[in-house]
């Protein structure tokens, strides 16, 4: 784990992935609003313990319109309690992966995928894509600033919709260029060469097995309790 109070808990990335999947199953299987609220509450508690509150709020701000739209569609086609459940399920499910990605670095993610026998090249491409999200984000900001400085409105909104090519074209071209340069740099560092070794060693330790067993137990218990209600 990377931040705050969770720093001391060093789980193997595979354990984190499996725990996230258990939680996702739990959310998908939950039918009652109270259960969904409880599951979201647990996630919010983890977010607070990880001291990721600000990042979570920023992320939630982006997610909320989609959740509201999703809820509105369900309301229109079924009813409002179903709409509340659907919107909550979407938020809780995606919050699970927010927590997972906050607690797992792209490198760890890639390495764990290699450990579950995904080819190294595929796992590396996946983890590098995550790694470069902030880089592309910085490029997007630079393009945004450069166009605004020329008086070309590219701020989000209907009025500037026709100017979006001014934002998207340079960004896409630069993303392609960055990808080309990255590919060249990786080639020049022996990427894809057979018989690769790894500096980091991942081993499932007692704490991982305990976490996995605990997770499985909680999943089974909650599913059982939900089934009997």
């Amino acid at each position: 784990m990377r931040s705050g109070c969770m720093r001391g808990v060093m789980l193997d990335p595979r354990t984190k992935l499996v725990l996230a999947l258990f939680y996702a199953i739990l959310i998908v299987a939950s039918q009652a609003t109270a259960w969904l609220a409880a599951e979201l509450g647990v996630l919010l508690l983890i977010v607070l313990i990880m001291q990721k509150g600000r990042a979570y709020l920023r992320w939630l701000r982006m997610l909320l319109p989609m959740a509201l739209f999703f809820g509105a569609v369900v309301w229109w086609s079924i009813d409002w309690p179903a709409a509340v459940d659907a919107a909550m399920k979407l938020i809780t499910l995606t919050s699970t992966f927010f927590v997972f990605f906050s607690a797992t670095t792209p490198d760890e993610m890639g390495d764990s995928l290699v450990k579950v026998r995904l080819p190294y090249t595929v796992a590396f491409v996946f983890s590098t894509a995550l790694q470069f999200v902030p880089v592309v984000g910085r490029k997007a900001k630079n393009v945004f600033d450069a166009q605004r400085a020329r008086g070309i409105p590219v701020e989000p909104g209907w009025s500037s919709l026709r100017n979006y090519p001014a934002f998207l074209t340079p960004l896409l071209i630069q993303a392609f260029k960055l990808a080309e340069e990255l590919a060249e740099a990786m080639e020049a560092r022996g990427f894809g060469r057979p018989h690769r070794s790894f500096l980091k060693e991942y081993k499932l330790r007692t704490v991982d097995w305990l976490a996995l067993a605990g997770g499985l137990l909680v999943l089974a218990a909650v599913l059982f309790l939900q089934g009997t209600n």
């Binding site: 560092r189 022996g190 690769r196 070794s197 500096l199 980091k200 060693e201």
Partner: peptide, 14 residues
């Protein structure tokens, strides 16, 4: 990890 990358490519022991 940046420095290790090329060394891992060569397949050197940890």
């Amino acid at each position: 990890m940046e420095i290790a990358f090329g060394l891992e490519s060569v397949g050197l022991p940890r």
